[in-house]
Amino acid sequence: MINPETWMEIREGGFYCVPAECYVDPMVPVTRAVVTHGHADHASRGHGRVWATPETIDIMRTRNYVADETQTTGLPYGQRHDLGGGVTLWFASAGHILGSAQAVFEYQGQRIVAAGDFKRHPDPTCAPFEVVPCDVFITEATFALPVFQHPPLEDEVEKLMRSMRTLPDRTHIVGVYALGKCQRVMKTLRLAGYEHPFYIHGALKRLTELYESYGQDFGVWQLVSEIDRNDKDRFRGKIVLCPPAQINDRWSRRFADPLPTVASGWMQIRARARQKRAELGLVVSDHADWNDLLRTCRETGAGMVWITHGRVEALEYALKKEGINAKGLHLIGIEEAAGE
C-alpha cells in the first residue's frame, strides 16, 4: 500500500492531490480546485477550473465566486469522474448544507475522503450524511470538545416558539448565517407549525431563492426593506431573520421591542452568548458535535484520520486513545467555520 502522504500533500493553498494536480477547498486562487461546499471558508474566488456538486456551483455563482471564464464541472453525488493522473473523484453527501459534499479521491487502490464540513443531525433542506469507508479520512474539528453536544433542532425551535408565546409583544430577531442556517431554521419552524410570514434581511434573499429553486418551500416571506419603516407593530410577535451581525445593529432599531436571538453551535457556551449580546441563544449547528465526530471517524474504518480546523488537539488525543492513527494538521484558513 502506498503512503497516502505521497499523493495528498499539505501546501500553502490547502490539500493538494499530486497526481491530479488539484487543490481541495483552496483559500487562494489556483488553476484546479475541488470544492466541497459553498461557504466562504471553503469556496473562494479566482480558480481556473472547479469541480463541485451542481448545487455548490450554483451557490458559488450566486455569491459571485466563479467568473464567466471559470470552467466548472458539476458532479451529482456518486457520479465518478476521471480527474487525471490516474485519480478518480466522486462526491458523497456531507449533510452540512445544500450541495455539501465529501470529496472522495481514489488512486492506486487507495481511497482518501476529504469530508469538508459535515453534520449527522437531520436537516430537511439537504441530503443526509453518507458514511464512506476509506483508508484516510480528513475531518474538521470545529466543535471537537466533549462540552459540545448539539440538541435536536426541533427542541431549539420549540424554545423559540415558547419565548414568542411568553412574550407576544416582542419582535424576535434571529441571527442566522445566510447560507444553510437561515433556510434550515425557516423550514424547521414551518414544520413545527409557525404560520406567520417570515421577515428577512436583504442579505438572505438570493440564497433563500436559490434553495426554493431546488424545491424547498418556506411559505410566505418578505423583505424587511419592503415594509414601511413606521409600521413597527407589523413585526410584534413575529420572527425576523438576519445575519448575526445585525441583531444589535442600528438596523434592528426599526422593530418593536426587539429580542436579539442567535442561532449557533457556540450558544452552548454562555460567554459566547454574552459576547454576541444575545438575549436568547439557540444551539443550532450545521457541524458535527463531539460524539458525532468520534463515531464518524470510527464508522469510516479509516486507518488514518487527518484533522483540520478547530479543536484539533482534543480530537487527535481522543482518537489515539481508541487506537486510531490520528494526526492533527494546522492549515491556513478560517478557524471558526461559516455556518457554525
Rank of each mutant, 00 (worst) to 15 (best):
E130K: 11
I200S: 06
E335T: 13
D58W: 03
M60N: 06
F118K: 10
L89H: 12
L75R: 08
D249S: 14
A33F: 05
I332F: 10
K119H: 12
T139N: 03
G310S: 08
L241C: 05
R111P: 08
H39N: 13
I334L: 15
Q268S: 12
F129G: 06
D257N: 13
A127P: 11
S225P: 00
R277E: 14
A273E: 10
P151M: 06
V104D: 11
R311W: 11
I269T: 00
Q71L: 14
G219S: 04
T56M: 05
I247L: 04
H309E: 10
P258F: 00
K276L: 10
K320D: 01
A103S: 15
I59T: 13
A92F: 03
F129N: 14
S285T: 04
S163T: 10
G175A: 05
G219D: 04
G193S: 05
Q149N: 14
A326H: 08
S285K: 03
L319I: 03
L83D: 08
T36M: 09
T139V: 15
R234D: 00
M8F: 14
G281S: 05
V284A: 13
T171R: 03
G339W: 07
T296F: 02
V305L: 06
A94T: 07
V87W: 09
Y23D: 11
G310T: 12
H37M: 11
A40S: 14
P19R: 07
E226F: 04
A115E: 02
F105E: 05
L191V: 01
S264P: 01
I97Q: 11
E69Q: 13
E195T: 14
W251D: 02
G215F: 04
M186G: 05
I10E: 14
W251S: 02
L241K: 03
T125K: 11
W90M: 08
I227K: 08
A43V: 02
D155W: 09
N325S: 13
I2Q: 11
F91I: 05
A101H: 06
V262M: 09
R234F: 00
N325A: 12
E279Y: 01
C17N: 10
A192Q: 10
T171L: 02
E316M: 03
W90L: 12
D249V: 00
I334P: 00
M27E: 05
R190P: 06
M267K: 01
T208G: 04
L223C: 05
R206C: 02
Q268M: 10
Y177I: 00
F15H: 12
G333E: 07
R254P: 00
Q268R: 07
A263T: 02
K159A: 10
W306R: 12
R234I: 07
T70Q: 09
M27P: 00
R120V: 13
T88R: 09
K238L: 01
R298Y: 06
D155S: 13
G219E: 04
H37K: 06
T31G: 10
F118W: 15
P26Q: 09
S213L: 08
Q268G: 02
Q222T: 13
C242H: 01
L167Y: 14
E130Q: 15
P122L: 11
C242K: 00
A245M: 06
R45F: 04
G175L: 04
R253E: 11
R49L: 11
F148L: 08
G13S: 15
D169E: 14
W221G: 11
M8P: 01
K181G: 03
N64A: 13
K187G: 00
C17E: 09
E340R: 12
